[in-house]
Each structure stands twice: as structure tokens, then as C-alpha cells.
Amino acid sequence: MTDEGGIRRAVELSCSSRRVWSALTEAHELSAWFGAEVELDLRPGGLARFLWPDGTARRAIVEVVVPQRHLVLRWLPFEEAPDGGRRQRRGSRIAFTIEDRGPASRLTIIEEGGASPLHPGDAAGSGRREDRPALHGIVATA
């Protein structure tokens, strides 16, 4: 658990950071392990769409792209049912960090559901308030 009440997982992978980056960012590779079919516009502000086998879809915004090092996605706070209906979900953020370990690499993922780890904000979580209007703007034009 992270300080923000998020999920942290780290795995050692016996391949290069370049290889891990490709597994995280090439849509066909991501689709092979993520559990959903993925479309991804890999640039800050780009949209990603995840389609699960049950027909449910979620969208995310690409927030940070540092090739072979760092990728941050933010889930938009809803999912779409196959019939087009929307259901609210938590707008959490996923941060992937890759570290070189010689011929191997270490991948850390953090998924946090609340106040931005980049802007911890004050006691009441002002980071959260700052995040929302921007997200709503994106949702409206998505």
C-alpha cells in the first residue's frame, strides 16, 4: 500500500527495459497481457481505450511518456457498457516505472485512486479538486 492508499507492485523481469517498454506501449502487446483489447495514442494527452472480453470499455488519458522509463495513465471515471450506457468508476491513475538492472529490468506499478501523487495537496486533498475540472473537460470532448 502506498501513502495515498494505492496499490504498489514491483516485478523483476528477465528482459531489457526496451522490451518491457514495448510490452507496455505497443497496443497489440498490451492487449496480450492486460486482459483487455487496447488502443493507445502514446503521447501526453493521448487517449487509450480498453475493451474487456465482456464488452465493457474504459478510457484513459496518457499523462506522462518517458520512453523506457515512465508511463502514466489516468482512467476516466466511468465505464461504458456494450449497450452504450455509462457507469461511474473511480478515476484512478496508473504509473509504470521501469528500471534497468543490467540485462534485466524491474517494473513498478502504482495505481492510486485519489489525490494526485504529483500534487499531494493539503489535508483535505486539494490535488483532487484541481484534477477534476480538467478531467471533466476531457470527458466532454472525448
Binding site: R9, V11, C15, A23, W33, I109
Partner: peptide, 25 residues
């Protein structure tokens, strides 16, 4: 709710990271 969110998301990632490891080997 926060605790059950953590449990659910944590389980999802355990599954995905296993799949990623298999994908990469």
C-alpha cells in the same frame, strides 16, 4: 469501500503482472 477497492485493484494487478511475465518469456 476504500479497502475493498484496494483489494480488487491489487488482485487485478497480481493477475496482469503474471500474464506480463508469461508474455515476456
Amino acid at each position: 469501500e476504500a479497502v475493498s477497492w484496494m483489494a480488487g485493484v491489487g488482485a487485478e494487478w497480481d493477475e496482469r503482472l503474471d500474464a506480463l511475465r508469461r508474455h515476456l518469456t
